[in-house]
């Protein structure tokens, strides 16, 4: 743990800077909520302008016949994706970290190499490809390509590697099978790692704009982030209503964030067992 700096003036300055970072991070949120209570014409008024707060924007959001659809679509998609992601990634990470087989290094290396390709460069082929697979306008066009993210494979593999060999060796001698070791020894130890995966996956898929915007076209199947753009008026976005929708859309992330915060800070360190 870093020691506190003795010089109290310097220390105060550093604390102040930390608080400043927090306030800078908080201010846009504060504005988002504030503007969501304004009428459209006042959206661009100075930031201290609060006259006549209105609930109309929230009413518009709630009364939109598809808002709950978007919300539930997104939750369903995110949950399915995360579950499938864990289901597929955990055994693979176990294999890459613990099991010896021919081509292990090569396959892992290949996977890591493709990690460098940003998804944005393949949006065109994905669109054409999903069209031939008839996946367009279904949530599977979002879910299927999201299941295998090498980043999480890397995270989990690194974590499993940090679990002492003795743990699994002892279990092997007791006659445990690999699936058994994975589920009863590794899994209980990977709480922080799984929490990290769940949180980061949740944030990334929840906030994904481009994929659902491109691949989904029915209004009732749309996801929450691109769906905010349904709130338009002649000549442009209805800013306060979009922000009202966004303020509501951020709630699940904030809840998950609060719940998992303890876990994921430990999870990224992946070192709880080392000592």
């Amino acid at each position: 743990m870093g020691k506190q700096i003795k010089n109290s003036a310097g220390s105060k300055a550093l604390t102040l800077t930390a608080w400043l970072i927090a306030l800078v991070a908080l201010f846009p949120f504060f504005m988002m909520v504030l503007i969501s209570f304004r009428v459209s014409g006042d959206a661009y008024e100075p930031f201290y302008y609060i006259i006549k707060p209105t609930m109309e924007n929230y009413k518009t959001v709630f009364l939109h016949k598809n808002y709950l659809d978007w919300y539930s679509n997104t939750i369903v998609t995110v949950v399915i994706t995360i579950l499938l992601r864990l289901l597929v990634t955990l055994p693979a990470s176990y294999a890459f970290s613990r099991l010896k087989f021919k081509g292990r290094g090569f396959i892992l290396g290949l996977l890591l190499a493709t990690m460098m390709v940003p998804g944005e460069t393949t949006m065109v082929p994905r669109y054409l490809y999903f069209k031939t697979l008839h996946l367009l306008d279904t949530k599977w066009s979002i879910i299927l390509p999201e299941i295998t993210e090498v980043f999480y494979l890397m995270l989990m593999t690194e974590f499993f590697r940090s679990i002492p060999e003795d743990f699994s060796e002892a279990a092997r001698i007791d006659g445990c099978s690999h699936p058994r070791i994975l589920s009863s020894i590794f899994l209980p130890l990977s709480g922080p790692s799984i929490a990290t995966t769940v949180l980061f996956s949740f944030i990334n898929i929840w906030n994904n704009f481009l994929d659902p915007y491109l691949f989904i076209n029915s209004i009732d199947k749309q996801m929450i982030t691109p769906a905010l753009k349904f709130f338009q008026e002649r000549g442009g976005a209805n800013i306060p209503v979009q922000l009202a929708g966004a303020s509501l859309a951020i709630i699940p992330i904030l809840i998950l964030f609060t719940v998992t915060q303890k876990y994921f800070v430990a999870g990224v360190s992946s070192s709880g067992i080392k000592g």
């Binding site: 970072i21 991070a25 908080l26 929840w206 982030t225 979009q242 859309a249 951020i250 964030f257």
Partner: peptide, 12 residues
Amino acid sequence: MAYLPYVTNVIA
């Protein structure tokens, strides 16, 4: 608070 920007929706 410092983690907040990470969880936000870029559009909003």
